[in-house]
């Protein structure tokens, strides 16, 4: 056990000393999580709201399977598909986004948007249908009704965006395939654990893992609060 405790101690030292590389990686990870969750929300909430308003009961058949695949697609698979598309000469090759943070960001938006859309659709479908109908009976326009509905399910939307951020933050499959895990450029807290272990820097790997766990803990706590608020509203 002393080995584990020693590594934890060294890792905490590394974090407390404000290691520059550690901070830079933390910054990249936070930027990535925020930027991908934000864009996933911009794309996913309108799509989910549309689907949720149209859905009367569960979606069946092929569309449901497709939705489920989008929700749980292994990041490695998405990474390879996107990687092929980003190759020079491929349709998105002109972007030159392979081994860049922009490429990772695109991958995580594509991973998170279906989740945001699905959670939004579920919240909208379970949302206060009576209230929306009542608003219509009192003359509310479609835009009024959508705003009313999104306002009513605000906590659920926040929970969806936080779930999207949680999804991306610990992900390494797409990060490594698209970003290449180039130290100092395209590594995140999670992918640095792999880098450091390969370089036999156990304390460094532990420090990055601890920071990652801390971030996940904070986001999970916020997510739990948002979900409870959404549950209390339902």
């Amino acid at each position: 056990m002393s080995f584990v405790l020693h590594m934890l101690g060294e890792a905490l030292d590394r974090i407390a000393s404000g290691d520059a590389e550690l901070l830079a990686t933390l910054g990249r990870t936070l930027w990535l999580a925020a930027a991908s969750a934000f864009v996933a929300a911009l794309v996913g909430i309108p799509l989910g709201a549309r689907a949720g308003l149209r859905a009367h009961g569960p979606v069946g058949g092929f569309r449901a399977v497709a939705a489920n695949i989008g929700l749980g697609l292994p990041p490695v698979v998405l990474g390879i598909i996107l990687g092929l598309l980003l190759l020079p000469g491929a349709p998105l090759g002109g972007l030159r986004w392979l081994t860049t943070m922009n490429g990772i960001w695109l991958a995580q938006v594509l991973l998170a948007a279906p989740l945001v859309a699905a959670l939004t659709a579920a919240a909208v479908a379970q949302g206060p249908a009576n209230l929306v109908l009542q608003a219509r009976a009192l003359g509310a326009s479609p835009r009024d009704r959508l705003l009313l509905l999104l306002g009513e399910i605000r906590p659920a939307l926040l929970a969806a965006v936080l779930a999207a951020a949680l999804l991306g933050i610990g992900e390494v499959g797409a990060v490594i395939i698209i970003g290449g895990n180039v130290a100092g450029h395209t590594n995140t807290l999670a992918s640095t654990v792999v880098l450091d272990l390969a370089a036999s820097d156990t304390a460094g790997a532990t420090a990055h893992a601890l920071l990652l766990l801390g971030l996940v803990g904070i986001l999970t706590w916020m997510h739990g609060r948002a979900r409870r608020a959404a549950g209390a509203a339902a």
């Binding site: 209230l131 109908l133 009542q134 608003a135 009976a137």
Partner: peptide
């Protein structure tokens, strides 16, 4: 129409009435 079941938004009473006036 005031439909069956008093469906109110999660806001204050006044805000509910004023929202309907807005609609």
């Amino acid at each position: 129409a005031a439909l069956q079941g008093a469906a109110l938004a999660r806001r204050s009473v006044r805000a509910n009435v004023e929202a309907a006036l807005g609609w």
